[in-house]
Amino acid sequence: MANYSTNEFKSGLKVMMDGEPCSIMDNEYVKPGKGQAFNRVKLRNLRTGRVVEKTFKSGDSLEGADVIEVDMEYLYTDGEFWHFMATDGSFEQHGASQEALGDTIKWLKEQDVYLVTLFNGAVLTVTPPNFVELEVTETDPGLKGDTANGGSKPATLTTGAVVKVPLFINIGEKLRIDTRSGEYVSRA
């Protein structure tokens, strides 16, 4: 990969920092009255999501990170890997480890499309769509006439995820869930 100098650092550039692929969030040039110029840079570690601040001497460079983002459809799991296929017609497939999946494992549904981040050709992270529709497999029986009070109860979905739902929801119903907050939105 190419090297990028501090004056080429801009938001979204993917670089290697301490052996980890990172995305640059912010880059500020700092020049004391007399003395060395610096760049104060905010980077997000693409594996952990953690944000770090580092200062560089102006003109220093970092190696670019081979990171690409691809829309992929979830196919199946063999117990060790979760397999995805590109939706661009290339039929390219990649297997994600449980570590790479992280919390997204709670929202995996066959044939849904996920944003897969590849680092050096391997799956680094999998980002779910903002909303998924999943079926309830387990919850206490629905209570009629309690739609107004806003009481809630836990419900288990096909993926194993547990979400809080209104009391009137029954087993077998399809629900729309916001994956960013993990909250119930509506009946699907």
């Binding site: 700092v30 003395g35 601040e53 580092k54 200062t55 001497k57 220093d60």
Partner: peptide
């Protein structure tokens, strides 16, 4: 302050600390 070693002179480090 910098988050890593920048291989600076005494004055260089003082500039980092001051800024």
């Amino acid at each position: 302050c910098a988050g890593h070693d920048l291989q600076l002179s005494r004055d260089g480090w003082l500039d980092v600390i001051v800024s």
